[in-house]
């Protein structure tokens, strides 16, 4: 079985593990199902346009495209369920089991453990957003020093939870309209259609502009970021995007003497005695 090295050195270059094979497979399923859902769904939202008619025809038209849409939706919902199980299992193994060993895991301890997770938004994210704005408005030349997951990545990660819940539940209501209206009022179908359609448009625009800009089209990665396939990020990008985490990993893996300077600082500079959470003073 392939081992996940945190830092891989190949031809003198360092590569940093970002996503395991399991996570990459989950992402590929997520990405492909979402693309299929957008392709088979958006022509219905924009049904009066020429491009929508052409696209829908290519996807099998009204007799086939809705079936493809529903199959993709079921796969995505199953993936969502799997991911929740995956999160719960990892949290149990990595947090609850040690807590149990050290005593009874109380609610406060578990809450603290949840908030400690690197993917959970925290105050540093707000500081990073403000620092980024300062940088973008030329008020400083220093870029925020990203943690393991930047605020952009947390946003990208959290968005599908909201999206899957909203679009998925409204889709289920519309799919099973007869059963749904046995329990819920009939007006729910009207609202489900609005939620499903408008939230899907928001999700699609968010993914195809914001997410794709950050991972594929920005000048650092153009024409395509490869981390979603290889699971590893180059040292250059680690420095640019996740400097705080980069320093932490380099130190932990015994490469403290090879740490590169933070983004925007051209002279070679190895940080000494940096404070926790702020490697460069």
């Amino acid at each position: 079985m392939a081992q996940n090295y945190i830092i891989k050195v190949k031809d003198g270059k360092k590569y940093f593990l970002r996503f395991t094979v399991n996570q990459r497979l989950q992402h590929i399923i997520l990405a492909s199902t979402v693309i299929i859902l957008v392709l088979t769904g958006m022509p219905l939202k924009f049904h009066g346009t020429l491009w929508a008619s052409y696209l829908y025809e290519q996807l099998g038209g009204i007799s086939l495209a809705p079936i493809i849409h529903r199959v993709a939706a079921v796969i995505l919902l199953l993936l969502g369920g799997y991911h929740l199980g995956y999160l719960t299992y990892n949290f149990y193994v990595e947090e609850i089991v040690p807590l149990r060993k050290n005593g009874k895991p109380g609610l406060i301890a578990i809450t603290k453990a949840v908030l400690r997770q690197p993917i959970i938004p925290n105050l540093k994210d707000i500081r990073d957003i403000l620092d980024l704005l300062k940088y973008l408005f030329f008020l400083t030349d220093k870029k925020p020093l990203g943690a393991k997951y930047t605020w952009k990545e947390k946003f990208d990660y959290m968005a599908p939870f909201w999206g899957i819940v909203m679009i998925g539940s409204s889709g289920i209501v519309m799919w099973g309209q007869d059963l749904a209206t046995k329990i819920l009022p009939g007006e729910i179908i009207s609202f489900a259609l609005i939620v499903h359609s408008d939230e899907a448009l928001l999700a699609a625009l968010f993914l195809f502009f914001w997410h794709w800009y950050n991972v594929h089209f920005s000048t650092s990665v153009f024409p395509m970021g490869t981390v979603f396939l290889t699971g590893y990020l180059t040292e250059e990008l680690m420095v640019e995007e996740h400097y705080e985490y980069y320093v932490e990993v380099m130190t932990k893996e015994g490469f403290e003497n090879e740490i590169l300077p933070p983004p925007g600082v051209s002279a070679p500079h190895a940080p000494e005695n940096h404070e926790e959470g702020s490697p460069i003073s």
């Binding site: 939230e199 625009l205 920005s218």
Partner: peptide, 28 residues
């Protein structure tokens, strides 16, 4: 309900689009 989603879409995407264009400008 539709108005809420219009505001949500605009409120989410416009600031992000702003950051995206500023980022592109700063990079160039």
């Amino acid at each position: 309900f539709t108005a809420f989603f219009l505001i949500l879409t605009g409120g989410t995407l416009l600031p992000l689009a702003g950051i995206m264009f500023l980022d592109l400008g700063r990079r160039l």
